[in-house]
Structure formats: C-alpha cells, structure tokens
Design a protein around this nucleic acid. Structure first.
Lengths: 375, 375
DNA sequence: TATTAGCACTCAATCGAGTAGAGTGCTAAC
DNA sequence: GTTAGCACTCTACTCGATTGAGTGCTAATA
C-alpha cells in the first residue's frame, strides 16, 4: 500500500500540526479530541499504528505518543500543508525592514537574512556564492593623499570592494588619473583568470613601465577580487534556537552553535542544496541533508540570480519540527523582495523603477510571478 | 582593620585561584591541603570567616565553601595576581593571526576581536567609537558606468566607506572627474557638521548649479559619514560562554546571548568604561559595571588612539570568575600589536616600517613600552 | 595568645522507591 | 469497520532518607 487514504492523511496532518506547535509526542486521544474527525481514540490508534509501520511516524518509547519522522515531514511539506498567508501587518513589517536604504549586494543579503531570522524566529544565514568568475565592471584608482591611493573594484554582480595601497610619494594625482583610466579600460569586462601576463604587459607599456606603480595597484585589484570571491557569510538569529525545547540541553545547544559558528560549514551547506523547486526554494529535512551535523535540523533555502547567474543564497535553519508553511511564505516574499531590490541596485536590465515591473519581466521562470500584486 | 595581613592575602589568593579554575565553592580543608601553608583547616576556617566578614568572600549557603565577591576579585586584580607570562607559542599564534593582511581599520578591529576570543575563550567585542567629528581626508567620485558613480570617503582615522549613487545618464566621466576634484578640495579637512549650506553653495557655483548631480553625490557623502559615525560593533566567540558552568542553565545562557545580541548595549558598554589604567586597559568586575544586565560578568577593555583620538575599543566579556592575569596579558599584547598595525595602515606619522620602531616612538605614554623586545 | 583537634550541626545534592498519568495494544462487543 | 474496555508499559515526578562536604564552636595544646 503505497498511498495513504484520506483519513490517514487527515490524521497525519493533525499530528504534525500539533507536534510542530507543542514539541510533545502526540497521543491518539488528543487527536480524536482536538480535531473533530468523528473517530474514537481507538480507531485513531489503529491508524497511527499503520502510519508508524509505513514510516511516517515514530514512537520515542512504547508508552509515549508519536512524533513525525523525516519522511512524515517530507510528505507534510509536499502534500499536506496548506500555504500560510502572511497578514498585512507581517508583510508590512518585512517590507519596511527590507526597504531601508540599501545600496550594495552584501548589505542586501545581510538585511534579508536579518529580516528572515527576526520573522521566523529561526537561525538564518546568507551567502554570496564563491565564484572565481566575477567579471570586473569598473576599476578605479583614487588618490587619497601623497603616497597612498585607493583601488576600487566593482563587479557585474554589483559588489564593491576597495583596497588601500601605498605608492611612491612622487606620483602625482594627475598621473594617477591617467593610470586609473588605463586600468579601467584594460581590465573591465575581464574575469580574474583573464588577467594574465599579456594584459599586464599591455598596461605596463601604456603606463610607461613604472613597476613601482603598477605592482601595488595590481595587488590591490587582486585583493579586492579575492575579497569578492571569498564567499561572505552572514548569520543572524543564532541564539533563537535556544528558545526551542529540542535545544534545552546546553550540550546540544553548544554543539549546534559551534557547528554554525565554524562558518566553513555554511557555504558547503548552501552549495549542497539540491534542485530548488520551480519557485526557487528548496527544503531539506533532517537526514535528507548530507552534512551529518545538520541531520537533526531542517534547512530552507532560496537562490537569487541575475541574468542566469546565482548571485546569492539565503537560508534558514531550524529544528525538523519547523513551521514549514510559515517559513515558506516568508521566504517567498523575501525572495521576491530581493529580486526587486537587486534590479533596483544593479539596474542592469533597466526596467522602469515601477511597481508593476512584472508586465515587463515576462520571460522569467519564476512560478510565483503569476500571483501578482506585490506589496 | 582595613588592611589584610599577609596570611589573609595568601589565603584569599589561594581561594580565588582555585575558584577561577574550578568554579566550585572552596572549602577550608582543600585550601590547607593543596597549598602548603602549614596551617590546619581550622585556622584557615577562622581566616576565611574573617575574610567573609570583611566582604572579600561570600558563602552561597551555610554548608558550602566560599567564593570570591566582586570586592575579592577587585583586590585580587589590583594586588594579588601575578602577571601571566604568555608562552612563545601563544604569542606566535596571536602574532600570525594578527598579521594577516589587513588594510583597513575596521578589518583590524575585527581581526583583533577574533584573535582575543579565540585565545581567551571568552566573548570578545570590538567597536569603532561613535563620533560625530570624523574629519574627511579625501572625497572622490568614481565613475562606474553611464548613470552611476561611486562616492568614496576616507577619514583621518583611516576608515574608508563608499556609496553607490545614481546620476543622470548625460554626465560624462570627464565632467565627473572635475566634479570629484571640486568635492575633494572643498570638503577635505571638514567634519560633517562643518558641511553647511555655505560650503554646498560654493560647490554648487563651481560645478555650475546642476542640482541633479550635486544632490546625489552629497547624499552619498552623507551616507558614508553616517556609516562611519554609526559605531560598528563586532562580536566574536559569543558561544564560548556556553562552556562555562555559570551558564549551564539554558535560561541564563539565553539571557546573556540575547543581551549581547542586541548590539545596542555594546557601544554603551564600551563608552561606559571608566578611566583606563596607565597601560590603557580597564577592568570592570561584576557590579562595578553600571549596566545591570552585565553585573554577573566582568569586562576587560582596551582603547586605541591615534594622535590623542580614541579610534577604537576592544573588550572581552566573561564570568566574574575570569582568568584575569591571562586576559590581561593577552590584551596587552594585542593592544600593542594593534598600535603597531594602525601605524602601518594609516602611516600618518611615517615611522619607518621597521621592527625596532620603538626607538623612534620615544614620546609615547604607553607604560608598557619600556618592556621592549616586541616580537 | 595563636593554633589545632574534635565534634555537632547544616544543607545541597543524590539516590531510590513509590506513584501518577499518558499512552499503547489487544480483545471482544457493537 | 468501529469502538469500549482493560491490562500493560514506561517516563516523569514526588518525597523521604542518606551522603558528604563544609562550617562554627569549644576545649585542649604549644
């Protein structure tokens, strides 16, 4: 018997809902009482016994109620749960948070992460993906004072980095501007790998072979790119998990926090995300996650892209007993908001700065788009 | 009897040392056993009773040993504890961490904070002070692409910020360079307050009254300065406290972490620091701290200045039962290292980039300086 | 007079038996 | 197929007894 009949679904649904809100094993009696199914506890008991046999429920010990298994949650997420509607107040709160002045991609991700964690009360993370193929959009050398200059690099993904370099004191600001233009001309449009000895030689000739100017600046550029390509990870709401009974034991809490704190694991996690659904959001429940330390948790992530390129990921981590519907609703909203903001910041494909940009965005594969009315 | 005789000091010292390492109330018998004082437990009992009456010790309940009071720790820190010598390995580890390429003040503070927390196993924080009097050292407007430019601001304290602004598409890069120079000339040397309507009018006239160029750039400058003046706070090792028995209760741990997480409290804390000692380091023990939520903790902080201006603070927070000697030793080293790096980064008072710069720094008031041999 | 040995007393922490209660599985009746 | 009833299981909680570390006091000692 592969499929569950309607009654089993109903009962499973009830149990998971209850367990998500109470964190206590659910017994047959409480199901028959709280949800008007017109069934006695004994009947439900039989059904629950079946559900356990089928792997959707687990009994912590013989004389306890039952709790959902990973498989149970998966079924719940895929088939049972009904979409959570955010209230107007909730949406407004998020909207305001998300629209505080943001003018760089990393700020945007950080803000999104923060909003998510505050809203869901779980731990959130955000990361710019580690990619060695950032393309330079602009390179500028800005004189600061005699003997030092600032190298500023902007990529096609809207990330801005700078690096202070020392130069010989003899270099004049005017000369620096010429140098800056040469660098900008020669490097913009290239990726880091494409900056090879040929390009450098070319610049060297144009500048006039003054090594002690060329090298510091080139180092500055390289450092900026390294900063960009080294995936930045933001965390927020790490301590939220202390509010959940699954972490009431300090040892468990410490394990979780330590794991989260070794930030190495997060890019890995975000990279590990399987095929996001058609709405760009992916859910991993318990052992579905390959990372062992995370197998007591669930992870919901969303990717953001610009022109087919994934330029960021945001995710939330919580106990497997997670309010999936709510998290999903929030994630969808935030994802949409982020896309909007990315357009605004980077403004690559100059859509007009209007509310109803969706009429223009026709080509997008975003399945949510049809829903319309974006607040 | 205001002063403690030598024997009382000895006993108090022993008790605090033991308590710092065990976190268990210390009994008379264990003192007489572990430390060869040639005294019976009964004698020690009498002395401990005296020390309690004098306020240096506290008895959690009648049939327990005693633990140090805030006053006890204070006496310990001021008079009893002997300076902790860091091992060569320890110093090397910190040295390597601190010398990873750093080229901006905020990076430096973050790195220092991280090193401190990893070394001491307590929670560390670092902050750039909130000051409305940052002085602009350079302002530059850098063209990025048609329709957008980057405003870069550098302050006298070596902080660099940038802000992306939108400009009319009609503005040419060449014109922007002219504009940039005008801004730089007119604004550098000023503090934010000094940028008044007069200065703006002056710039406006020089540019040629094109409002739609002036305003975005001015907004960009303002935003950069706001970013600078809004004290940035870095935290590190927050979860370290979970390793200490005083936080074995999740509720306590949560309280602490939540308090720490509302970052508003940290600048307040760092501002609250009383007169730092002659070595620039301050210790606040328990209730000595005015902030109520912190009165179960001790806080050790150090300030860094550049030319008399405090440009940063770094601190560590831990239980009152803190390894003061060790923390102090580490803090001294890091403080010295930071001063060194600040010189290197900002290079205002161009000391040569040499190891033995101390011979040049003669004028410094740093009382540690005499110790010499900086690794 | 300062120190120490001895002893009664205190109190948190630990242990264990007993109990309560939530929940199941099974059986028999409907 | 559903339900009522009942015996059984197992955790969590309670509560008294016990343990043991530590104190304070007193009397003996150097």
């Amino acid at each position: 018997m592969m499929f569950l009949d309607d009654r089993k679904k109903l009962i499973l649904h009830a149990i998971i809902d209850d367990y998500i809100s109470t964190a206590e094993p659910i017994g047959s009696r409480s199901v028959s009482k709280k949800h008007e199914l017109g069934l006695s506890s004994a009947t439900i008991r039989n059904e629950m016994s079946d559900l356990e046999e089928l792997g959707y429920l687990i009994q912590p010990h013989t004389s306890a109620g039952r709790i959902p298994s990973d498989k149970g949650y998966r079924f719940y997420v895929d088939q049972l749960m009904k979409a959570c509607e955010l209230t107007v107040d909730e949406i407004n709160a998020m909207k305001i948070e998300m629209e505080t002045k943001i003018n760089e991609l990393s700020q945007l991700l950080r803000q999104a992460s923060s909003t998510m964690s505050r809203f869901t009360k779980y731990t959130s993370m955000a990361a710019t993906p580690e990619r060695k193929n950032s393309e330079l959009k602009a390179v500028q050398v800005v004189p600061i004072e005699r003997g030092s200059a600032l190298v500023v690099v902007v990529t096609n993904a809207g990330i801005i980095k700078n690096s202070l370099v020392k130069l010989p004191e003899t270099v004049s600001p005017e000369f620096l501007i010429r140098v800056s233009n040469i660098f900008n001309d020669k490097l913009s449009g290239l990726t880091l790998e494409q900056i090879n000895i040929m390009v450098i030689r070319e610049i060297e000739i144009l500048i006039g072979s003054s090594q002690e100017i060329l090298m510091p600046i080139l180092n500055g550029v390289t450092e900026c790119i390294n900063q960009i390509d080294t995936s930045e990870v933001y965390l927020d709401g790490t301590t939220n998990i202390l509010n959940y009974p699954e972490f009431k034991d300090v040892v468990k809490a410490r394990e979780f926090l330590n794991m989260i704190d070794t930030k190495d694991i997060l890019p890995l996690l975000l990279k590990n995300i399987k095929n996001a659904g058609d709405n760009g959001i992916s859910i991993q429940i318990g052992k579905e996650n390959e990372i062992e330390e995370m197998q007591d948790c669930s992870v919901v992530t969303a990717n953001y892209n610009l022109g087919g390129l994934v330029i960021g990921t945001i995710g939330i981590i919580g106990p497997t007993r997670m309010e999936y519907a709510r998290v999903l609703a929030a994630m969808k909203y935030i994802r949409r908001k982020i896309n909007e903001e990315i357009d605004r910041i980077i403004g690559n494909s100059f859509k007009d700065f209007n509310r109803d940009s969706k009429t223009i965005k026709g080509g997008l594969t975003d399945s949510d788009e049809e829903k319309g009315e974006l607040i």
